[in-house]
Amino acid sequence: MADAILTDDPEARRAARTWMINRVVIYGLLGLFAVIYLLPLFVVIMNSFRTIEEIAQNGLINVPRSLTLNAWSEAWSTYCINGACEGMKRNFYNSLYMTIPATIISTLLGAINGYILSKWRFRGSEVLFTCMLFGVFIPGQLALLPWAYLLGQLGLQNSITGLALVHIIQGISFTTLFCRNFYVSIPDDLIKAARIDGAGFWRIFYKIVLPISPPILIVTVIWQFTGIWNEFLFGVVLTSGKEQPITAALVALAAGEQNVRNYGVMSAGVLIGALPPLLIYFFGGKYFVRGLTQGAVK
């Protein structure tokens, strides 16, 4: 009797059908949008492996009929950008030399700031924190001219060191915000216990606070690395030629001096420029989401 109801109930069958249709529609739509969203990436990847002739013949958006790595090697080491025919290799290393130290230093400064602003509050520390938060909301272009002037005064104009300095300072607002909000959830008792145990400001920081920090440090490092690597405005304005980071070089590539646009090389160049942040996301994305939603100590 009960089995009959479970298998032979017309109402249940109708409900099952409606459910099925709903699923098909929902996943169909989601799939469609995913395809639309991923199409440009697909086109770029395909074009980076096609020959110029084939692209010219069959159009930009088409399935590849030939396969070659020439565009990649050309984009990496021989293509002419900004008058020099060295490819994007140099700009890629520029970006690394800028992004890695800037990420590490701004994250460390953010951690120290956050530690002070949450665990060693002083008169006016809340006001200071609010002021630092302004930096999160102020658009970078506002600081463009002052930076150009300041770097000139420091003798760091048109240099990767100068650009790294800019990113360190510009990044402190974000790193401080992340770390401070994480450290607020560390119980004050922990700090008190350590003080009674005879530990001072720095010892508490590196023995107790830093070891609990990996979740937020991973978030901050990923955020800073992708942000600084992908940043382009400061790179274009404050540096030129050989000193440019890869994002700025890509603009030069797109604005190309040659008459015929080499879509294969441009595609490879774009992918070279996008690879490091993609890899960081690929390997660290899981920790990123986890870190953003986690408190310090349960």
Partner: peptide, 25 residues
Amino acid sequence: AMVFQSYALYPTMSVRENITFGMES
């Protein structure tokens, strides 16, 4: 020496390290 309501044990250290932290400092 003080004992806290939340115990305030250092979460990343072992029990031994928790106990020796003060002497180490």
